[in-house]
Design a protein around this nucleic acid. Structure first.
Lengths: 248, 248
DNA sequence: CGCAGAATTGATACATCTCAAGCTGGGTGG
DNA sequence: CCACCCAGCTTGAGATGTATCAATTCTGCG
Protein backbone atom coordinates (compact mmCIF):
# COMPACT_ATOMS: atom_id res chain seq x y z
CA UNK A 1 0.00 0.00 0.00
CA UNK A 2 2.76 2.42 0.90
CA UNK A 3 4.06 1.81 -2.60
CA UNK A 4 1.27 3.79 -4.10
CA UNK A 5 1.30 6.53 -1.52
CA UNK A 6 4.46 8.52 -2.00
CA UNK A 7 4.78 11.23 0.60
CA UNK A 8 4.33 14.64 -0.88
CA UNK A 9 4.87 16.45 2.36
CA UNK A 10 5.95 19.99 2.62
CA UNK A 11 4.29 21.08 -0.59
CA UNK A 12 3.35 24.69 -0.14
CA UNK A 13 -0.31 25.67 -0.06
CA UNK A 14 0.63 28.82 -1.94
CA UNK A 15 1.45 26.77 -5.03
CA UNK A 16 -1.59 24.54 -4.75
CA UNK A 17 -3.66 24.25 -7.94
CA UNK A 18 -6.92 24.24 -5.95
CA UNK A 19 -5.91 26.96 -3.51
CA UNK A 20 -8.63 29.38 -4.64
CA UNK A 21 -11.51 26.94 -4.98
CA UNK A 22 -11.14 24.35 -2.22
CA UNK A 23 -12.29 24.46 1.37
CA UNK A 24 -9.27 26.63 2.14
CA UNK A 25 -10.18 29.24 -0.47
CA UNK A 26 -10.94 32.01 1.99
CA UNK A 27 -8.17 31.31 4.45
CA UNK A 28 -5.59 33.97 5.20
CA UNK A 29 -1.90 33.11 5.57
CA UNK A 30 -2.20 32.41 9.29
CA UNK A 31 -4.99 29.96 8.69
CA UNK A 32 -3.08 28.33 5.86
CA UNK A 33 -0.16 27.84 8.23
CA UNK A 34 -2.54 26.11 10.62
CA UNK A 35 -3.81 23.86 7.85
CA UNK A 36 -0.29 23.05 6.66
CA UNK A 37 0.44 21.54 10.05
CA UNK A 38 -2.44 19.10 9.91
CA UNK A 39 -2.28 18.20 6.26
CA UNK A 40 -0.72 15.31 4.37
CA UNK A 41 -1.07 14.11 0.81
CA UNK A 42 -2.21 10.71 -0.34
CA UNK A 43 -2.19 9.28 -3.85
CA UNK A 44 -4.34 6.55 -5.29
CA UNK A 45 -4.18 4.64 -8.54
CA UNK A 46 -7.15 4.50 -10.84
CA UNK A 47 -9.50 1.83 -9.54
CA UNK A 48 -8.33 1.93 -5.94
CA UNK A 49 -10.78 2.40 -3.12
CA UNK A 50 -10.17 5.43 -0.93
CA UNK A 51 -12.56 4.32 1.83
CA UNK A 52 -15.39 1.86 2.19
CA UNK A 53 -18.75 2.92 3.49
CA UNK A 54 -18.87 2.19 7.20
CA UNK A 55 -15.11 2.39 7.65
CA UNK A 56 -13.58 4.71 10.15
CA UNK A 57 -12.06 7.76 8.49
CA UNK A 58 -9.61 9.80 10.50
CA UNK A 59 -9.31 12.60 8.02
CA UNK A 60 -11.26 14.87 5.75
CA UNK A 61 -9.78 15.82 2.41
CA UNK A 62 -9.80 17.86 -0.77
CA UNK A 63 -9.33 16.34 -4.20
CA UNK A 64 -6.19 17.95 -5.61
CA UNK A 65 -6.09 16.21 -8.96
CA UNK A 66 -7.93 13.32 -10.61
CA UNK A 67 -11.49 12.13 -10.22
CA UNK A 68 -13.22 10.07 -7.56
CA UNK A 69 -16.74 8.77 -7.11
CA UNK A 70 -19.12 8.44 -4.17
CA UNK A 71 -21.31 5.37 -4.43
CA UNK A 72 -23.93 3.52 -2.43
CA UNK A 73 -24.43 -0.20 -2.78
CA UNK A 74 -27.49 -2.22 -1.84
CA UNK A 75 -27.26 -5.67 -0.29
CA UNK A 76 -28.02 -7.39 -3.57
CA UNK A 77 -25.37 -5.42 -5.44
CA UNK A 78 -27.39 -2.68 -7.06
CA UNK A 79 -25.22 0.43 -7.10
CA UNK A 80 -25.96 4.13 -7.34
CA UNK A 81 -23.34 6.79 -7.69
CA UNK A 82 -24.27 9.77 -5.54
CA UNK A 83 -21.38 12.09 -6.26
CA UNK A 84 -18.60 12.75 -8.72
CA UNK A 85 -15.62 14.37 -7.04
CA UNK A 86 -13.49 16.71 -9.11
CA UNK A 87 -10.42 18.74 -8.13
CA UNK A 88 -11.20 21.06 -5.19
CA UNK A 89 -14.18 18.97 -4.05
CA UNK A 90 -14.36 18.03 -0.40
CA UNK A 91 -14.56 14.50 1.03
CA UNK A 92 -15.74 13.52 4.47
CA UNK A 93 -17.95 15.08 7.05
CA UNK A 94 -16.67 17.11 9.97
CA UNK A 95 -18.15 15.66 13.12
CA UNK A 96 -18.58 12.19 11.69
CA UNK A 97 -15.78 9.65 11.87
CA UNK A 98 -17.44 6.94 9.77
CA UNK A 99 -17.68 7.10 6.00
CA UNK A 100 -21.23 7.11 4.63
CA UNK A 101 -20.31 6.09 1.08
CA UNK A 102 -17.71 4.17 -0.84
CA UNK A 103 -15.12 6.55 -2.25
CA UNK A 104 -13.25 5.25 -5.29
CA UNK A 105 -10.54 6.72 -7.47
CA UNK A 106 -11.64 6.45 -11.10
CA UNK A 107 -8.47 8.08 -12.35
CA UNK A 108 -5.13 8.49 -10.64
CA UNK A 109 -5.92 10.68 -7.70
CA UNK A 110 -4.14 12.97 -5.28
CA UNK A 111 -5.89 14.10 -2.15
CA UNK A 112 -4.92 16.70 0.40
CA UNK A 113 -5.95 15.19 3.73
CA UNK A 114 -6.47 16.99 7.03
CA UNK A 115 -6.36 15.07 10.29
CA UNK A 116 -9.89 15.08 11.61
CA UNK A 117 -9.45 16.34 15.14
CA UNK A 118 -7.33 19.43 14.46
CA UNK A 119 -9.52 20.26 11.48
CA UNK A 120 -12.64 20.13 13.62
CA UNK A 121 -10.99 22.23 16.29
CA UNK A 122 -10.05 24.80 13.70
CA UNK A 123 -13.63 24.99 12.47
CA UNK A 124 -14.74 26.06 15.93
CA UNK A 125 -12.24 28.89 16.08
CA UNK A 126 -12.10 30.49 12.65
CA UNK A 127 -15.10 31.19 10.44
CA UNK A 128 -13.44 31.09 7.03
CA UNK A 129 -13.30 27.32 6.65
CA UNK A 130 -16.85 27.08 7.93
CA UNK A 131 -18.14 29.68 5.50
CA UNK A 132 -16.44 28.14 2.51
CA UNK A 133 -17.53 24.64 3.44
CA UNK A 134 -21.12 25.82 3.79
CA UNK A 135 -20.98 27.38 0.36
CA UNK A 136 -19.55 24.20 -1.16
CA UNK A 137 -22.09 22.02 0.61
CA UNK A 138 -24.95 24.16 -0.66
CA UNK A 139 -23.59 23.80 -4.18
CA UNK A 140 -23.41 20.04 -3.76
CA UNK A 141 -26.96 19.98 -2.45
CA UNK A 142 -28.14 21.85 -5.53
CA UNK A 143 -26.27 19.39 -7.73
CA UNK A 144 -27.79 16.45 -5.87
CA UNK A 145 -31.26 17.87 -6.36
CA UNK A 146 -30.69 18.39 -10.05
CA UNK A 147 -29.60 14.77 -10.17
CA UNK A 148 -32.79 13.72 -8.37
CA UNK A 149 -34.78 15.22 -11.23
CA UNK A 150 -32.64 13.34 -13.71
CA UNK A 151 -32.97 10.03 -11.87
CA UNK A 152 -36.67 10.33 -11.18
CA UNK A 153 -38.05 11.80 -14.35
CA UNK A 154 -35.70 11.78 -17.32
CA UNK A 155 -35.62 9.18 -20.09
CA UNK A 156 -32.47 7.19 -20.81
CA UNK A 157 -31.64 9.42 -23.77
CA UNK A 158 -32.12 12.56 -21.72
CA UNK A 159 -29.95 11.12 -18.97
CA UNK A 160 -27.06 10.39 -21.34
CA UNK A 161 -27.40 13.77 -23.04
CA UNK A 162 -27.41 15.49 -19.63
CA UNK A 163 -24.27 13.72 -18.49
CA UNK A 164 -22.44 14.48 -21.72
CA UNK A 165 -23.54 18.10 -21.50
CA UNK A 166 -22.21 18.38 -17.97
CA UNK A 167 -18.89 16.87 -18.91
CA UNK A 168 -18.68 19.11 -21.96
CA UNK A 169 -19.51 22.15 -19.85
CA UNK A 170 -16.79 21.28 -17.39
CA UNK A 171 -14.33 21.10 -20.23
CA UNK A 172 -15.47 24.43 -21.58
CA UNK A 173 -14.88 25.95 -18.17
CA UNK A 174 -11.40 24.45 -17.91
CA UNK A 175 -10.10 25.13 -21.39
CA UNK A 176 -11.95 28.30 -22.18
CA UNK A 177 -12.76 27.22 -25.69
CA UNK A 178 -14.32 29.53 -28.22
CA UNK A 179 -18.10 29.51 -28.10
CA UNK A 180 -19.96 27.83 -30.89
CA UNK A 181 -17.13 25.63 -32.13
CA UNK A 182 -17.11 21.85 -31.82
CA UNK A 183 -16.20 20.54 -28.37
CA UNK A 184 -13.94 17.59 -27.77
CA UNK A 185 -13.30 15.86 -24.47
CA UNK A 186 -12.50 12.49 -22.93
CA UNK A 187 -15.09 10.57 -20.93
CA UNK A 188 -13.64 10.12 -17.47
CA UNK A 189 -16.04 7.25 -16.76
CA UNK A 190 -16.50 3.73 -18.11
CA UNK A 191 -19.91 2.69 -19.39
CA UNK A 192 -20.52 0.90 -16.14
CA UNK A 193 -19.71 3.98 -14.08
CA UNK A 194 -21.97 6.04 -16.29
CA UNK A 195 -24.72 3.48 -15.74
CA UNK A 196 -24.23 3.68 -11.96
CA UNK A 197 -24.38 7.44 -12.10
CA UNK A 198 -27.50 7.59 -14.27
CA UNK A 199 -29.52 4.77 -12.75
CA UNK A 200 -29.37 2.67 -15.92
CA UNK A 201 -27.80 -0.58 -17.05
CA UNK A 202 -24.60 -0.70 -19.01
CA UNK A 203 -26.45 -1.98 -22.08
CA UNK A 204 -28.88 0.92 -22.07
CA UNK A 205 -26.02 3.39 -21.74
CA UNK A 206 -24.30 1.80 -24.70
CA UNK A 207 -27.44 1.80 -26.84
CA UNK A 208 -28.25 5.42 -26.11
CA UNK A 209 -24.71 6.54 -26.87
CA UNK A 210 -24.93 4.67 -30.16
CA UNK A 211 -28.26 6.36 -30.87
CA UNK A 212 -26.86 9.83 -30.20
CA UNK A 213 -23.99 8.98 -32.52
CA UNK A 214 -26.37 7.74 -35.24
CA UNK A 215 -28.33 10.97 -34.90
CA UNK A 216 -25.20 13.04 -35.38
CA UNK A 217 -25.37 14.66 -31.95
CA UNK A 218 -21.98 13.29 -30.97
CA UNK A 219 -19.00 11.62 -32.65
CA UNK A 220 -16.78 9.03 -31.03
CA UNK A 221 -13.06 8.43 -31.42
CA UNK A 222 -12.53 5.02 -29.88
CA UNK A 223 -14.72 4.54 -26.87
CA UNK A 224 -13.76 7.47 -24.70
CA UNK A 225 -13.11 10.53 -26.83
CA UNK A 226 -16.27 12.48 -27.59
CA UNK A 227 -16.78 15.30 -30.04
CA UNK A 228 -19.88 17.48 -29.83
CA UNK A 229 -20.33 19.31 -33.13
CA UNK A 230 -23.17 21.51 -31.87
CA UNK A 231 -23.65 21.79 -28.14
CA UNK A 232 -27.05 23.41 -28.53
CA UNK A 233 -28.45 20.40 -30.29
CA UNK A 234 -27.16 18.20 -27.48
CA UNK A 235 -28.68 20.49 -24.87
CA UNK A 236 -32.05 20.16 -26.56
CA UNK A 237 -31.91 16.46 -25.82
CA UNK A 238 -31.37 16.91 -22.09
CA UNK A 239 -34.97 17.86 -21.37
CA UNK A 240 -33.78 20.93 -19.46
CA UNK A 241 -34.78 24.48 -20.19
CA UNK A 242 -32.77 25.51 -23.18
CA UNK A 243 -29.67 27.54 -22.59
CA UNK A 244 -28.60 26.71 -19.08
CA UNK A 245 -25.86 29.32 -19.22
CA UNK A 246 -23.76 27.21 -21.54
CA UNK A 247 -24.08 29.07 -24.79
CA UNK A 248 -23.86 32.80 -25.29
CA UNK B 1 -53.51 37.59 0.52
CA UNK B 2 -53.19 39.47 3.77
CA UNK B 3 -56.24 37.52 4.88
CA UNK B 4 -54.23 34.37 5.13
CA UNK B 5 -51.18 36.00 6.62
CA UNK B 6 -52.05 37.12 10.09
CA UNK B 7 -49.18 38.93 11.73
CA UNK B 8 -47.68 36.94 14.50
CA UNK B 9 -45.11 39.53 15.40
CA UNK B 10 -43.50 39.76 18.73
CA UNK B 11 -43.71 36.07 19.44
CA UNK B 12 -40.77 35.27 21.63
CA UNK B 13 -38.02 33.00 20.33
CA UNK B 14 -37.74 31.55 23.80
CA UNK B 15 -41.17 29.94 23.42
CA UNK B 16 -40.56 28.75 19.89
CA UNK B 17 -41.30 25.05 19.30
CA UNK B 18 -38.32 24.70 16.98
CA UNK B 19 -35.92 26.77 19.06
CA UNK B 20 -33.55 23.88 19.73
CA UNK B 21 -33.49 22.32 16.27
CA UNK B 22 -33.69 25.14 13.74
CA UNK B 23 -30.96 27.29 12.30
CA UNK B 24 -31.00 29.33 15.51
CA UNK B 25 -30.38 26.30 17.71
CA UNK B 26 -26.93 27.33 18.86
CA UNK B 27 -27.57 31.03 19.23
CA UNK B 28 -27.10 32.70 22.60
CA UNK B 29 -29.53 35.30 23.90
CA UNK B 30 -27.69 38.19 22.24
CA UNK B 31 -27.86 36.48 18.90
CA UNK B 32 -31.51 35.63 19.40
CA UNK B 33 -32.18 39.31 20.04
CA UNK B 34 -30.50 40.10 16.76
CA UNK B 35 -32.64 37.53 14.97
CA UNK B 36 -35.83 38.78 16.61
CA UNK B 37 -35.25 42.15 14.96
CA UNK B 38 -35.10 40.75 11.45
CA UNK B 39 -37.77 38.12 11.76
CA UNK B 40 -41.43 38.00 10.82
CA UNK B 41 -43.93 35.19 10.57
CA UNK B 42 -45.91 34.18 7.54
CA UNK B 43 -48.73 31.66 7.29
CA UNK B 44 -49.90 29.72 4.28
CA UNK B 45 -52.92 27.57 3.68
CA UNK B 46 -52.56 24.01 2.48
CA UNK B 47 -52.03 24.11 -1.26
CA UNK B 48 -50.67 27.64 -1.41
CA UNK B 49 -47.39 28.34 -3.14
CA UNK B 50 -44.74 29.94 -0.94
CA UNK B 51 -42.45 30.88 -3.84
CA UNK B 52 -42.05 29.94 -7.47
CA UNK B 53 -38.74 28.81 -8.85
CA UNK B 54 -37.03 31.80 -10.42
CA UNK B 55 -38.85 34.32 -8.27
CA UNK B 56 -36.98 36.81 -6.20
CA UNK B 57 -36.98 35.88 -2.52
CA UNK B 58 -36.07 38.54 -0.04
CA UNK B 59 -35.99 36.29 2.96
CA UNK B 60 -34.78 32.97 4.22
CA UNK B 61 -36.96 31.04 6.63
CA UNK B 62 -37.51 28.18 9.02
CA UNK B 63 -40.60 25.99 8.95
CA UNK B 64 -42.25 26.45 12.33
CA UNK B 65 -45.22 24.14 11.84
CA UNK B 66 -46.76 22.24 8.95
CA UNK B 67 -45.17 20.66 5.91
CA UNK B 68 -43.90 22.11 2.65
CA UNK B 69 -42.37 20.62 -0.47
CA UNK B 70 -39.53 21.60 -2.78
CA UNK B 71 -40.22 20.63 -6.40
CA UNK B 72 -38.65 21.00 -9.81
CA UNK B 73 -40.75 21.05 -12.94
CA UNK B 74 -39.63 20.33 -16.50
CA UNK B 75 -40.93 22.28 -19.46
CA UNK B 76 -43.34 19.53 -20.43
CA UNK B 77 -44.76 19.27 -16.94
CA UNK B 78 -42.86 16.34 -15.48
CA UNK B 79 -42.35 17.06 -11.80
CA UNK B 80 -39.88 15.80 -9.24
CA UNK B 81 -40.03 16.61 -5.58
CA UNK B 82 -36.52 17.25 -4.29
CA UNK B 83 -37.23 18.00 -0.67
CA UNK B 84 -39.83 17.57 2.04
CA UNK B 85 -39.68 20.39 4.58
CA UNK B 86 -40.68 19.60 8.13
CA UNK B 87 -40.73 21.84 11.21
CA UNK B 88 -37.26 23.31 11.87
CA UNK B 89 -36.12 22.81 8.26
CA UNK B 90 -34.54 25.77 6.51
CA UNK B 91 -35.72 27.38 3.26
CA UNK B 92 -33.69 29.56 0.95
CA UNK B 93 -30.03 30.03 0.29
CA UNK B 94 -27.95 32.74 1.89
CA UNK B 95 -26.18 34.61 -0.86
CA UNK B 96 -28.77 33.80 -3.49
CA UNK B 97 -31.79 36.03 -3.96
CA UNK B 98 -33.61 33.86 -6.51
CA UNK B 99 -35.49 30.71 -5.57
CA UNK B 100 -34.18 27.53 -7.22
CA UNK B 101 -37.29 25.46 -6.61
CA UNK B 102 -41.02 25.78 -6.20
CA UNK B 103 -41.92 25.79 -2.52
CA UNK B 104 -45.48 24.69 -1.73
CA UNK B 105 -47.41 24.30 1.49
CA UNK B 106 -48.95 20.85 1.57
CA UNK B 107 -50.54 21.43 4.94
CA UNK B 108 -51.27 24.68 6.72
CA UNK B 109 -47.88 26.18 7.27
CA UNK B 110 -46.20 28.75 9.47
CA UNK B 111 -42.76 30.02 8.58
CA UNK B 112 -40.37 32.17 10.56
CA UNK B 113 -38.81 34.44 7.95
CA UNK B 114 -35.61 36.45 8.27
CA UNK B 115 -34.99 39.39 6.01
CA UNK B 116 -32.18 38.39 3.70
CA UNK B 117 -29.73 41.21 4.04
CA UNK B 118 -29.51 41.41 7.83
CA UNK B 119 -29.39 37.63 8.01
CA UNK B 120 -26.46 37.48 5.62
CA UNK B 121 -24.71 40.22 7.54
CA UNK B 122 -25.19 38.32 10.75
CA UNK B 123 -23.67 35.20 9.21
CA UNK B 124 -20.45 37.10 8.56
CA UNK B 125 -20.15 38.21 12.14
CA UNK B 126 -21.21 35.33 14.35
CA UNK B 127 -20.28 31.70 13.76
CA UNK B 128 -23.22 30.00 15.46
CA UNK B 129 -25.72 30.40 12.69
CA UNK B 130 -23.09 29.37 10.20
CA UNK B 131 -22.17 26.26 12.13
CA UNK B 132 -25.73 25.15 12.60
CA UNK B 133 -26.63 25.83 8.99
CA UNK B 134 -23.65 23.79 7.82
CA UNK B 135 -24.74 20.89 9.98
CA UNK B 136 -28.30 21.08 8.66
CA UNK B 137 -27.11 21.35 5.07
CA UNK B 138 -24.89 18.29 5.46
CA UNK B 139 -27.88 16.38 6.83
CA UNK B 140 -29.95 17.45 3.85
CA UNK B 141 -27.20 16.41 1.48
CA UNK B 142 -27.13 12.96 3.07
CA UNK B 143 -30.90 12.74 2.73
CA UNK B 144 -30.71 13.81 -0.91
CA UNK B 145 -28.12 11.13 -1.62
CA UNK B 146 -30.23 8.47 0.04
CA UNK B 147 -33.05 9.62 -2.18
CA UNK B 148 -30.81 9.33 -5.25
CA UNK B 149 -30.37 5.65 -4.47
CA UNK B 150 -34.11 5.28 -4.15
CA UNK B 151 -34.84 7.10 -7.40
CA UNK B 152 -32.13 5.41 -9.40
CA UNK B 153 -32.23 1.84 -8.22
CA UNK B 154 -35.28 0.89 -6.19
CA UNK B 155 -38.40 -0.81 -7.49
CA UNK B 156 -41.81 0.80 -7.13
CA UNK B 157 -42.64 -1.44 -4.18
CA UNK B 158 -39.37 -0.62 -2.47
CA UNK B 159 -39.94 3.07 -3.07
CA UNK B 160 -43.36 3.01 -1.43
CA UNK B 161 -42.13 0.91 1.47
CA UNK B 162 -39.20 3.29 1.96
CA UNK B 163 -41.44 6.34 2.04
CA UNK B 164 -43.87 4.74 4.47
CA UNK B 165 -40.97 3.65 6.67
CA UNK B 166 -39.60 7.18 6.76
CA UNK B 167 -42.96 8.65 7.67
CA UNK B 168 -43.48 5.97 10.31
CA UNK B 169 -40.01 6.65 11.72
CA UNK B 170 -40.74 10.33 11.94
CA UNK B 171 -43.87 9.56 13.89
CA UNK B 172 -41.99 7.27 16.21
CA UNK B 173 -39.54 10.06 16.90
CA UNK B 174 -42.30 12.55 17.61
CA UNK B 175 -44.58 10.44 19.74
CA UNK B 176 -42.05 8.20 21.37
CA UNK B 177 -44.14 5.10 20.95
CA UNK B 178 -43.28 1.80 22.54
CA UNK B 179 -41.05 -0.35 20.40
CA UNK B 180 -42.52 -3.36 18.70
CA UNK B 181 -46.17 -2.31 18.81
CA UNK B 182 -48.25 -1.40 15.78
CA UNK B 183 -47.65 2.09 14.41
CA UNK B 184 -50.38 4.39 13.18
CA UNK B 185 -49.95 7.68 11.36
CA UNK B 186 -51.52 9.94 8.76
CA UNK B 187 -50.03 10.33 5.31
CA UNK B 188 -49.18 14.01 4.92
CA UNK B 189 -49.09 13.65 1.13
CA UNK B 190 -51.64 12.92 -1.57
CA UNK B 191 -50.99 10.06 -3.98
CA UNK B 192 -49.88 12.59 -6.55
CA UNK B 193 -47.39 14.18 -4.17
CA UNK B 194 -46.08 10.74 -3.27
CA UNK B 195 -45.67 10.01 -6.98
CA UNK B 196 -43.73 13.24 -7.49
CA UNK B 197 -41.51 12.41 -4.57
CA UNK B 198 -40.82 8.83 -5.66
CA UNK B 199 -40.44 9.34 -9.39
CA UNK B 200 -43.54 7.27 -10.17
CA UNK B 201 -47.00 7.83 -11.60
CA UNK B 202 -50.02 8.20 -9.40
CA UNK B 203 -51.42 4.90 -10.67
CA UNK B 204 -48.30 2.98 -9.76
CA UNK B 205 -48.34 4.51 -6.28
CA UNK B 206 -51.93 3.46 -5.84
CA UNK B 207 -51.31 -0.07 -7.07
CA UNK B 208 -48.29 -0.60 -4.85
CA UNK B 209 -50.11 0.67 -1.79
CA UNK B 210 -52.91 -1.73 -2.58
CA UNK B 211 -50.38 -4.52 -2.96
CA UNK B 212 -48.78 -3.78 0.42
CA UNK B 213 -52.26 -3.79 1.92
CA UNK B 214 -53.11 -7.13 0.27
CA UNK B 215 -49.88 -8.57 1.64
CA UNK B 216 -50.75 -7.45 5.15
CA UNK B 217 -47.78 -5.11 5.50
CA UNK B 218 -50.02 -2.13 6.09
CA UNK B 219 -53.66 -1.44 6.85
CA UNK B 220 -55.59 1.58 5.64
CA UNK B 221 -58.34 3.55 7.35
CA UNK B 222 -59.77 5.62 4.55
CA UNK B 223 -57.11 6.83 2.22
CA UNK B 224 -54.72 8.64 4.54
CA UNK B 225 -54.50 6.82 7.85
CA UNK B 226 -51.92 4.03 7.80
CA UNK B 227 -51.33 1.31 10.36
CA UNK B 228 -48.13 -0.70 10.27
CA UNK B 229 -48.64 -3.88 12.29
CA UNK B 230 -44.99 -4.92 12.12
CA UNK B 231 -42.45 -2.30 11.16
CA UNK B 232 -39.72 -4.87 10.64
CA UNK B 233 -41.67 -6.58 7.88
CA UNK B 234 -42.14 -3.22 6.19
CA UNK B 235 -38.44 -2.44 6.51
CA UNK B 236 -37.63 -5.71 4.78
CA UNK B 237 -39.48 -4.41 1.74
CA UNK B 238 -37.43 -1.21 1.47
CA UNK B 239 -34.36 -2.91 0.02
CA UNK B 240 -32.19 -1.23 2.66
CA UNK B 241 -29.94 -2.98 5.09
CA UNK B 242 -32.19 -4.36 7.75
CA UNK B 243 -32.49 -2.45 10.97
CA UNK B 244 -31.61 1.10 10.08
CA UNK B 245 -31.76 2.13 13.72
CA UNK B 246 -35.51 1.92 13.79
CA UNK B 247 -36.07 -1.12 15.92
CA UNK B 248 -34.10 -1.62 19.07
C1' DC C 1 -0.47 -11.93 -32.05
C1' DG C 2 -3.60 -13.05 -28.86
C1' DC C 3 -5.80 -12.32 -24.75
C1' DA C 4 -9.06 -10.16 -21.27
C1' DG C 5 -11.84 -6.62 -20.13
C1' DA C 6 -14.90 -3.31 -22.10
C1' DA C 7 -18.33 -2.26 -25.19
C1' DT C 8 -21.84 -3.22 -28.63
C1' DT C 9 -25.77 -5.48 -30.45
C1' DG C 10 -29.78 -8.65 -30.59
C1' DA C 11 -33.93 -11.06 -28.79
C1' DT C 12 -37.00 -11.32 -25.27
C1' DA C 13 -39.07 -10.40 -20.64
C1' DC C 14 -41.06 -7.48 -17.55
C1' DA C 15 -41.97 -3.32 -14.75
C1' DT C 16 -43.94 0.77 -15.11
C1' DC C 17 -46.50 4.09 -17.88
C1' DT C 18 -50.53 5.48 -20.42
C1' DC C 19 -55.15 5.77 -21.36
C1' DA C 20 -59.71 4.83 -19.81
C1' DA C 21 -63.36 3.60 -16.71
C1' DG C 22 -65.27 3.41 -12.23
C1' DC C 23 -65.30 4.06 -7.33
C1' DT C 24 -65.43 6.52 -2.76
C1' DG C 25 -66.21 9.81 0.67
C1' DG C 26 -67.02 14.28 2.19
C1' DG C 27 -69.33 18.56 1.17
C1' DT C 28 -73.29 21.24 -0.81
C1' DG C 29 -77.59 22.67 -2.23
C1' DG C 30 -82.30 21.55 -2.96
C1' DC D 1 -82.18 14.19 4.69
C1' DC D 2 -81.22 12.86 0.39
C1' DA D 3 -79.22 13.39 -4.25
C1' DC D 4 -75.64 14.92 -6.47
C1' DC D 5 -71.04 16.35 -7.37
C1' DC D 6 -66.26 16.53 -7.48
C1' DA D 7 -61.51 15.65 -6.34
C1' DG D 8 -58.91 12.07 -5.10
C1' DC D 9 -58.24 7.47 -5.59
C1' DT D 10 -58.48 2.71 -7.48
C1' DT D 11 -58.56 -0.70 -10.97
C1' DG D 12 -58.13 -2.60 -15.67
C1' DA D 13 -56.10 -3.38 -20.34
C1' DG D 14 -52.73 -2.49 -23.37
C1' DA D 15 -48.40 0.08 -24.89
C1' DT D 16 -43.69 1.08 -24.18
C1' DG D 17 -39.13 1.80 -22.33
C1' DT D 18 -35.69 -0.35 -20.01
C1' DA D 19 -33.78 -4.58 -18.00
C1' DT D 20 -32.19 -9.11 -18.71
C1' DC D 21 -29.86 -12.77 -20.93
C1' DA D 22 -26.83 -14.07 -24.54
C1' DA D 23 -23.59 -13.57 -28.22
C1' DT D 24 -20.30 -11.07 -30.73
C1' DT D 25 -17.11 -7.47 -31.57
C1' DC D 26 -13.97 -4.09 -30.28
C1' DT D 27 -9.83 -2.13 -27.89
C1' DG D 28 -5.83 -1.60 -25.47
C1' DC D 29 -1.93 -3.93 -24.12
C1' DG D 30 1.42 -7.48 -22.70
Amino acid sequence: MALHEPLLHGKDCGDCPIRHRAVCARCDTDELDQLEKMKFYRSFQAGQTVVWSGDRMDFVASVVSGIATLTQTMEDGRRQMVGLLLPSDFVGRPGRAVASYDVTAVSDLVMCCFRRKPFEDMMLGTPHVNQRLLEMTLDELDAAREWMLLLGRKTAREKIASLLAILARRDVALRQRARGGPLRFDLPLTREEMADYLGLTIETVSRQISALKRDGLIQLEGTRQVTVPDIRRLLEETGDDSDGGMVG
